[in-house]
């Protein structure tokens, strides 16, 4: 971990030197833009092999194809983050036979940066999840599960900050209420904390205290449960938030051809995205950062 940090710092230094070589004048006057690419999956549910949609003869998804897709995007833009919004486990015999080992190993090989936890990630109990952690080279990010009385204590982070070419990206995670979805003997002493309150704390820490340029919420709350439901969802969270730029969602297997734009408490735009399930799609959102105030929009403006 320390070594990784060192490399990150070293490469950031490299960028600065390169900029310096361009000459002071060019740096100050010319507007620079940096593109951050956010790639994301959700509810892959152990779909390691490609699969067929009933009645269609097309073979879709599959980790080996996704790997090449991600690799080509990383070549095009090294400032890329790869995130998963939970429910990695359950859905094919790979999970029944190996308990999630192969899912985590492959996500590590694909160099996922972080994932949040979905309810199905508790399907072999909290002990079953813990047992697979050695196979994951990426962080599990969740801010509203209090694991302090469980075996998962200290094995997740509420948030993580990534630095890509001088741009600070804060990512925090939110999980769904487990009661009713997972039996208690599976999640044991895991405490579910209010996602709205927690996200207010998280987004303040990330945007105000840590000065992040981009704040992403990785959520397994579900997209929306309809006008008659008070159940917390990504759309309701977005409306009641401040300082979140993007919510990457999961749980409801919602396929959004483009992100939903929601006005937050400050009347700024929040993007809510989700890309179906089973690895059929890879979501991609590119954020262009500019130091030229003349072309900067009011918060997030989506151009599709």
């Amino acid at each position: 971990m320390n070594r990784r940090r060192f490399i990150q710092k070293a490469s950031a230094g490299g960028t600065l030197i390169a900029l310096g070589n361009l000459g002071l004048q060019s740096f100050v006057s010319a507007p620079t833009t940096t593109k951050i690419t956010v790639l994301h999956t959700n509810d892959v549910h152990s779909h390691i092999d490609s699969w067929k949609i009933a009645g269609k003869n097309k073979d879709i998804g599959g980790v080996a194809r996704r790997a090449n897709l991600i690799e080509s995007i990383r070549k095009e833009n090294p400032n890329t983050l790869l995130l998963d919004a939970g429910d990695i486990f359950q859905g094919t015999p790979y999970f029944n036979y190996y308990g999630g080992e192969l899912e985590f190993k492959l996500m590590s090989k694909l160099k996922y940066d972080a994932a949040t936890l979905g309810n199905h990630d508790f399907d072999n109990g909290i002990d079953g999840l813990y047992a697979q952690l050695p196979h994951a080279n990426f962080d599990f990010i969740t801010a509203n599960y209090d694991f302090s009385n469980t075996i998962m204590n200290t094995h997740t982070k509420p948030y993580k900050i990534f630095k890509k070419s001088g741009i600070k990206i804060g990512v925090f995670g939110l999980g769904i209420e487990l009661e009713g979805l997972v039996t208690r003997d599976m999640f044991k002493e895991t405490k579910y904390l209010d996602p709205v309150e927690i996200s207010q704390d998280m987004s303040r820490i990330l945007k105000v205290e840590e000065n992040c340029d981009l704040v992403i919420c990785l959520s397994h709350l579900g997209y929306y449960y309809g006008d008659n439901s008070k159940k917390i969802s990504d759309l309701i969270l977005a409306k009641n938030s401040k300082n979140i730029d993007l919510i990457i969602g999961g749980h409801t297997h919602t396929f959004l051809p483009e992100p939903t734009v929601v006005k937050n408490l400050d009347n700024k735009n929040v993007l809510v995205n989700q890309v179906g399930c089973f690895g059929e799609n890879l979501g991609r959102i590119d954020f262009h950062f500019s130091n030229n105030t003349a072309i900067s929009g009011n918060g997030t403006s989506l151009i599709v």
Binding site: S50, I60, N273, V275, G283, I285, S290, N291, G297
Partner: peptide, 19 residues
Amino acid sequence: LHISKVENTVLKVSDTLSV
């Protein structure tokens, strides 16, 4: 720094992609 532009693409993991 300011966000000047946001672009979205949904990438289909289809059988036309290489393995």
